[in-house]
Design a protein around this nucleic acid. Structure first.
Lengths: 183, 183, 183, 183
DNA sequence: CATGAATGAGAATTCATTCAT
DNA sequence: TATGAATGAATTCTCATTCAT
């Protein structure tokens, strides 16, 4: 039985669901079916556990951004990234809930944050090539990235709060985002 | 002597700056120059105080959305709303910091959240007229609102984290958002 | 009801009797008849409480060393100091038990320790005048002080462990110490 | 491979250096290069380990008190004991640090303490013969022993806290102690 | 209404000890 | 016999809330 994994899973579910500050370590231990001390054998303290979870999510997110087929049209490649990111969080709602909480939190260290940025390195590359090819607006890449990321977050917020039967179509979102950034 | 106001101001500055969970009621009392009991005379508990702050910010935001001149072109009216919202938070950075923290927090009640939505009622109206006049894309209004709101939040995040000397231009942001939603 | 005093008294009795590490703050609170939080209102943490106790004892000890009558013979003056110190701890056995524990402990700060040294300033003066008058051996004062202090500590240890009926006479002790240091 | 010895050595160095309560069993195991379970195979619990260390030191101290040459003058014999004891702890500073900590500690059992007393049996004998021969003051032997022991402890404290270059001379100490106890 | 000392439940963290391997 | 991950009771400290003044 992999206790470390059990702990991370229990932590994910409780931290995302109840909130970081409403989840005592004892609750995580109970949910993971271990003693509290066991958590501390694997993670020196609560913040480190949370950072580990953050980095683990970001690493999985990274795996989603596989290099798209370069022979595809630019817009197709962009949409693949976009849809990939959205789908990743739709498939893992707890990840989204947790990342939302941690985004602006002082708990996440600069180091964890930096490792999180790696996830989007290949997207940045695509955007910059799009700017060179005059497909994308000539705006600073970080600003574009922030904008695109923002549309994703908002879509997901919207997606998760919407009632089951009326999940908003991703097509609209894609169209708006593309219109926003295209030259 | 308006103690209630002093308490709200102290709470705003501490909750925004230090974080909700790192701000004890005692610190708020000290900053407000009152006793702790006085806070409890005005706000039955900490959560209610925080909700009051949230609603107060949303109400001030509402005041910003004054009906634009109907004789102006639609796009001008839209930009007035957009710039107004952005400017409101640029002028009140603490408001933004606090709202960001509370956005996804279970502290904010459904009721407070609902009252927050009133702020944007007049914008909704504008958007719907835009859709009727086929200036704006035919997408569900809530989805459009969410999208627009998302771009504002992301711009502000970007704005506040950027170094002093290189505050990003709002023009790019306006252009992207308009291109996104326009027919 | 002076709670701070009650806390110090409870702390003294438990720390001295059970030992510093065997006395939880909760036990002190219970003994003092207060809540645990009350202790922390008066002393920010356990170490500070212990230091406060240490300094308080040293201050009371200081009060014991009243300037002796200068017209008395030197030896009389010396014995007054010696007997005073011994009597102080015989009268306050808990003080002795606690000081013994804390003497070499890293809990006591340099500052507390320094304040403790003030207690013996007037004794140092007497010893130095004794050396000048060639009544006392020409040995470095700190070494003499350490020696004298050591004989007191040992006597007290002996005194407290001895059975009730055979408390050792202080006279022997005084004689030995005097013979040791006299020219 | 003598694991028991390795454990005792690791325990000595850590307990003396860091303090009894700041040294977890896990740290001792690591320093000794064994698993934690191994310690518990040799010593049923932490207190028993500490007592074993105490008794071991006292036994080594005992070995230092070899019967002096009976043809030597009494004072020479006494000084041999005295210097031997002092030298023992100067040669083994960790022993002194640990014994100091444990002196007043409830961890040390009455049994261990009793076994510690054996160390000085031969010194007691010498002192009593000195009293019979009217070389030493007619004071209860235990009181004399306590006094002598006290001067040693204080000298050592003084010795170890003094700066390297100004180690206090043992000669002064010997003179004072002798003057104190001699008839 | 205003005050702020008192309260104690609850949180993070430690570590002696056990036991399956 | 050796190992060290697992355990959870025990400890320190915090802070929302109360209430006597």
């Amino acid at each position: 039985m992999n206790r470390k994994k059990a702990i991370l899973e229990a932590a994910l579910s409780l931290l995302a669901e109840k909130g970081v500050h409403a989840t005592p370590m004892s609750a995580i231990a109970k949910e993971a079916g271990t003693g509290m001390g066991t958590i501390y054998n694997h993670f020196p303290n609560k913040n480190i556990l949370i950072n580990a979870l953050y980095v683990s999510i970001k690493n999985q997110e990274k795996a989603v951004f596989v290099a798209p087929d370069d022979s595809d049209p630019f817009r197709t490649q962009f949409e693949q990234y976009y849809v990939g990111a959205v789908q990743f969080f739709i498939d893992n709602p707890l990840y989204f809930k947790l990342i939302e909480q941690l985004q602006a939190s002082p708990i996440i260290t600069a180091e964890s944050r930096a490792s999180g940025l790696e996830a989007v390195a290949s997207v940045i590359e695509l955007i910059e090539s799009g700017k060179e090819r005059r497909i994308i607006k000539a705006i600073e890449t970080p600003e574009l990235m922030q904008f695109i990321g923002g549309t994703i977050v908002c879509y997901l917020r919207w997606y998760f709060q919407a009632a089951k039967e009326e999940k908003p179509s991703l097509a609209n979102q894609l169209k708006m985002t593309w219109d926003a950034i295209k030259q």
